[in-house]
Amino acid sequence: MGFRDLKLLEVKNITVTFETDEGIVKAVDDVSFHINRNEIVGLVGESGCGKSVTALSILRLIPLPYGRIETGEILFYGKNLLELNRKEMRKIRGRAISMIFQELGSALSPLHTIGRQMVETILMHKNITRKDAWNIAETWLEKVQISDPRERMFAYPYQLSGGMQQRVMIAMALMLGPDIIIADEPTTALDVTIQAQVFELVREMRRSHTSILLITHDMGVIWEMCDRVLVMYASRVVEEGNRDDIFSKPTHPYTIALLESIPKLSADKGRLKAIPGQVPSALNYPSGCHFFDRCPDAFDRCRDEKPKLIDLGNGHKAACFLTKNEL
């Protein structure tokens, strides 16, 4: 089997825009990446950099008509998802690619019991009896360590804590045996000891050969969970590589600065290395490199020209004019 065959999902040159009252927002700008079979890919970046929009565009959940995927292809098993009709797309969602959303509210309906929602979802994709679907759902609640799964099937979402709702969503994302799970900040709203429980589950998922796109703003989470990393800044991917490469030889000035600015768990005190300025608004990203106004190494060329991702070998890429092969 050649290297290409390993690619389960390939996102090619996706650009997504939104029409807003203040003007056109380019939320995702020419983003490309792939997910291999059996791999956890991390997508990391600060709020507003385009992580969620990237995820939503894979499942074609960008809110119409304001939002538009302007260009690009999303190849899943070699088929372009952007060319499927609604019915075909609905089959992909949930069954082949499922999503765990950042906001707990957006995926579970407050009107129906957990059990009913799970059973309906199963029946949408599988031709089995209601009773069998019920049993499958209950088994999954048990697998994600929900106590008293039999009773919880009759509970409404508001009766469960945040941690439990998140585990129900994980069960729902898993129960149809998808090829890929897109998890958008699945633990950001949870406490660390509950996060640790959820990650234990995610590790088990991987054992069942599911690929995962894990979105987070936390570099610690990336280190603990991911095989490969995409670093996003202001709508663009600025660096990509194996986890170890990204952490031991970060190359893009943003990745370097980000890693240095994180407070470490240690008793050593002293000033942190902060990144000056703030994340630019999507309405006026710099015209050249988007990191230009905050970059300690910026020079003239960075002002007007957009750097492309340069291959550094071993799948490690960075989009900066200072990158070795670029100079």
Binding site: S47, H217, S261, P263, A274, Q278, V279
Partner: peptide
């Protein structure tokens, strides 16, 4: 945001 957190922590320490 992570990149702004460090600025505010530094200010508080100063």
């Amino acid at each position: 945001d992570v990149s702004v957190q460090a600025q505010v922590i530094n200010l508080l320490m100063d």
